[in-house]
Amino acid sequence: MFATSLPEEKLIEMYRKLWLARNHELLAEEWKLNGRIQGSVHLATGQEAVAVGACSALEVDDYIMGTHREHAQMIAKGVNIRRMAAEMLGKATGMNQGKAGHMLFSDKSVNALGGCGIVGGGAAVAVGYAMAFKVLGTRQVSLVFFGDGAFNTGAVHEAINFASVRKYPVIFLCENNRWGLTVMQHEQTVVEDLSDRARCYGIPGVTVNGNDVLAVYEAVKLAVDRAREGDGPSVIEAKTWRMRGLAAGYPMDWEPSEYHEEGRKQDPIRLFEEKLIARNILSEEMAKGIEEETRRVVEEAYEEASQAPYPDEAVFWENVFAAPIG
């Protein structure tokens, strides 16, 4: 699908971001499993096209709110990979000085604000971003990623309804990997296409193949244009496949093999690569080069981060209150 007349550089940039996100996830998994990253690590391996397609339709000024599986989302929005790696390791040079960790980090410089470890907790905050844009008349939009599990929480429905009635410029992007933690979608809801729910709120809803980066881009672009024109929010469901378990190291042997077979078949990077090569925008050699270059970037970021100091106690006490009180 090349209905959009995206310039070649933009398409190559999207391809590179897919690889940057994928290589990040592969390395983060390795570092988690060998104990160099602490805590849990929710990997977006296989889901990168949702993030890259969506953020490619946004401007730097636009805000995103991510999920607990936020790495690809934040990379797609353009966060500094070195500061991100340092955050993943809890270092002082991390984008949040090591306070946030892998599922909560944010980067104000690109309005990646931010991860959210409470399933469904971010939607209302994104509505607030959009409220500010509308009141201040800035023409910015906000986009919130949330999963299929989150789409069964009351807070997400409250947020969508509120945004609809106020016509706030926000895009509700359901990144549906068919898993709410360890429970599959059909055990959590009888609705097949979750974008159908948009009809209940009187706003547009569309379902796309989330592993087709251009399909995601197209859908989000339409929603962004609509939001900027003052026509209010939209719901987009991007169906995708989680190539790993709930988090790095989680057993997957009990998960249905058909799901994972389909996921491998639908690898978003391969799908996009085939299209770009068929159109002579990308050669196999260039593709290999981008894969290797992005791997180096991620490796260097993590090696550098591993040498960085941990934050000191002063950081611990800072910003409980971010401003004077009395």
Binding site: N96, S106, K108, G114, E318, A323
Partner: peptide, 8 residues
């Protein structure tokens, strides 16, 4: 504010 570097 605490986690996101003093965002108000």
């Amino acid at each position: 504010p605490y986690i996101w570097e003093g965002i108000k």
